[in-house]
Design a protein around this nucleic acid. Structure first.
Lengths: 334, 334
DNA sequence: TACAAGACTGCAAACGTTTGGAAGGCGGAT
DNA sequence: ATCCGCCTTCCAAACGTTTGCAGTCTTGTA
C-alpha cells in the first residue's frame, strides 16, 4: 500500500505537507496542493485509518450489539443505525449476543479494545453490570429498546407499559376475559414492563390473574410455539393471547392453527413490534407498533452528536407505541 | 485509558516485557509474568487494538457488504458470517448498499481505508469494477450469492440455473403452461441466471416466451406488488408466477389476493430463498431453498482461513438449491 | 538597505503497540 | 580463572499518521 511518505517522495515534499494537503488545509500552496492531489490519485493512495485513529484517538466506528440480527425488529434497528452512521462516515460493527449476558460482556470488551467511539446496545439485560462500567468510564453509549438498572443511562425506547396497556385493553374492549400473556425473558426490562402492565390492566377490569395464563420465555418463534401449545392445551383455554413480540405471536399462530383453533375465530392473538411480516395479507397480525428503524436512527444520531462534541450522550427518548388493528383479533363470542 | 507503559511503570519493568507477558511469551519469567498480569488486571488494562493493528498490519475486522440487512436472506447470511468471525475474534463491519453500485464502491473504499483484513460481498452487480480492483490488489474477498464478471473470483453461491429449473419444472409438472417470471435487477448475475434458466425450461417444453410475462425489477416487496399487479391485470393472465425471491413473492401474494385471485386456487406462486417467513402456516410459500446462514459461514470460514494463511481465498463453492413444496402451488385446472 | 510580516514548508514528537537484537547476570564446564 | 551458554530483561525502531513549532523565502514598507 502506498503511504503518505510515498506520495511525499514522489512530489518532493515532506509527509506533513502531504497530510495537510489531503486535509485541504489553507496552510499549503494551491499549486503544491494540486500536485500532491494528483500524485496521490496516480499512486492510488488511500489514507490508513488505523494510523490516523491511533494519533487522533478516534476510530470512526461504533459498535452495535443486538440479541439476534435475524429478528426483523433488530434488523430494522440496525438499518436505522447504519444509515446515520454511514452518513457521518462511521462504520458499524455488528455483534449478535443471542441474549446471553456473557457474550454481551465479551463483545463490549472486544469493542472497547477496538476503541470504537461509541456503543449502541439493544441487548441489555436488567443486571447488565457492564452498563454501569460504561457509565463509570464515561464511555459513550445508548441503550435501545431495553433498559438496564443503571439510573440515568441514555436510551431510546417506546413506552412498554403504555403499549401493553393498549394491547390488553384492545382485547378487553373486544369482550375477552380470558387473556393470556407470553412474555420475553424475565431479565429484560421491557418484558417485565409488559407483564406488569398486563397484570395491572387485568386488575383494573376485575379480571383474575391466572398464573397458567402468563409466562416468561424467549423472544423466538420456537418459544412461542412451545408456550402457545402449553396454554392452548390447558383445561381452561384462554380466548386471547397477548404475545410480547410478533415473532412469538407467529409461533403461537402456528400451533393454534395446528390445534384446530382458528385465529381470530377461536383465539384472538396480538403481538408486539409490528414487524414487516405482520402486515402480510395472510397474516394480518394485530400488534403494537414500535418504530424500529427510527429508533435506530435516533440512537445513532444522539450517540454521534455526543461523540463529536466530546460529551456523554444524554438523550432519554420515549416514543409512543401504536395499536395496529388487523384481523388476528376479533370480538369474543361464546 | 491505561497503557502498556502504565502497567510497566507500576511493575517496574519495560513495556516490551509487559507486552510479552500479556502475550504469554516463554521469554518472560513466570514470576514477573504473574506480577504483570496482576498489575494489568488491577489497573484495568485493555490492549489498544488500533495500535496493535498498526504495527501488526492486521485489523481483526472483516467487512460485510449487503444490499439490505432487512431482507431475511441477508440477515441470515450476516448471522452466519458473524458466528464464524466472532469465534475467530474478528469484528464484522456491516454495510447496506441498497444495491446501488456507487454506494458499494464507496463502502469498499471506506473499508479498505480502515484496513479490514477481508471482505464479504453479497451485493456485487455484474460490472462491479471494484471486484477486479480487489483481485488486482490481491485483497482478500469472497462473493456471496452474487457473481461479478471477474473471471476467477472466490465465491459461495447456489446453482441458480438449477434452482430456477426446479421451480419452473415444478410448475410445469403441475400442468401450468402460462408461467410468468418476476426477476431481480438485471445487473445481478443470479437474477439473470434464473431468467435464463426459466426461458430455457420453457423452450424445452415447447412453451412460448411471452415477453409481458417476464420482467426484471427489484428484490423488494414493493417491486413484487407492482410487477404482480401489472401481470395479473393482463388480458391473458398467467396461471403461475415464479418470483426470483421470496420477498417479491410475498408482494405478489399480497396483490393477488387483493385482485380476487386466490393462491393457489387461481394462481400458483413460487419464490426463492426459503426465508423463515415463507414457512408460516398462513403463508406456506412453495420456494427454492438456499442455505443462507451456511453460506455466510462457509464464506467467512474460507475468507478467514486465507487471511490467516496470508494467501488469497480460493474457495468456489456451489451449493445445491432445494425445492420446498408447500401450498402456494397447486395443479393447474382449467 | 534593513526589517517586519506573511506565506509556505519541514522537523520532530506523539499515539500505543510489537519484536529483533543487544546486554546483563548467573551457573556450569573446562 | 575463563569462557560459554542460558535465562531474562531492556533498548530502539517501526507501523503511518497529525500537528505545534521553527525555519525559509518572498514581498512590501519604512
Amino acid at each position: 500500500m502506498t503511504t503518505l511518505k510515498d506520495v511525499a517522495k514522489a512530489v518532493g515534499v515532506s509527509p506533513s505537507t502531504v497530510s495537510r494537503a489531503l486535509a485541504d488545509s489553507p496552510l499549503v500552496n494551491r499549486e503544491t496542493k494540486a500536485r500532491i492531489l494528483r500524485a496521490a490519485m496516480e499512486l492510488g493512495y488511500e489514507r490508513n485509518e488505523v494510523a490516523r485513529a491511533l494519533v487522533m484517538g478516534i476510530s470512526g466506528a461504533v459498535g452495535l450489539i443486538v440479541p439476534d440480527i435475524t429478528n426483523p425488529f433488530f434488523s430494522d434497528v440496525a438499518r436505522g443505525v447504519s444509515e446515520i452512521a454511514d452518513r457521518a462516515g462511521y462504520g458499524v460493527i455488528l455483534c449478535n449476543t443471542d441474549g446471553r449476558p456473557d457474550r454481551e460482556l465479551s463483545y463490549i470488551r472486544l469493542l472497547r479494545r477496538k476503541r470504537v467511539d461509541g456503543l449502541i446496545v439493544c441487548s441489555a439485560t436488567l443486571r447488565a453490570s457492564y452498563v454501569s462500567d460504561l457509565a463509570a468510564a464515561a464511555f459513550p453509549y445508548v441503550l435501545v429498546s431495553r433498559l438496564s438498572l443503571e439510573p440515568d443511562a441514555p436510551y431510546v425506547i417506546t413506552d412498554d407499559r403504555a403499549g401493553a396497556r393498549l394491547a390488553v385493553e384492545h382485547l378487553i374492549d373486544l369482550g375477552h376475559r380470558r387473556i393470556a400473556f407470553i412474555g420475553g425473558p424475565e431479565n429484560v426490562q421491557s418484558s417485565r414492563d409488559r407483564m406488569a402492565s398486563y397484570l395491572e390492566v387485568l386488575a383494573e377490569h376485575g379480571l383474575p390473574d391466572v398464573s397458567a395464563w402468563r409466562c416468561h420465555t424467549d423472544f423466538t418463534q420456537g418459544a412461542g410455539r412451545e408456550a402457545g401449545r402449553r396454554m392452548l392445551s390447558l383445561d381452561e383455554v384462554p380466548s386471547a393471547i397477548f404475545a410480547a413480540n410478533d415473532v412469538i405471536a407467529l409461533g403461537v399462530l402456528e400451533v393454534a392453527e395446528g390445534l384446530g383453533l382458528p385465529v381470530p375465530g377461536s383465539l384472538s392473538l396480538i403481538g408486539y413490534d409490528d414487524i414487516r411480516y405482520a402486515a402480510l395479507p395472510r397474516i394480518q397480525l394485530t400488534t403494537i407498533a414500535q418504530p424500529a428503524v427510527e429508533m435506530g436512527q435516533i440512537a445513532a444520531d444522539g450517540l454521534l452528536a455526543a461523540v463529536k462534541a466530546g460529551i456523554a450522550p444524554t438523550l432519554q427518548r420515549v416514543l409512543a407505541p401504536r395499536l395496529v388493528v388487523r384481523s388476528s383479533t376479533a370480538p369474543h363470542s361464546e
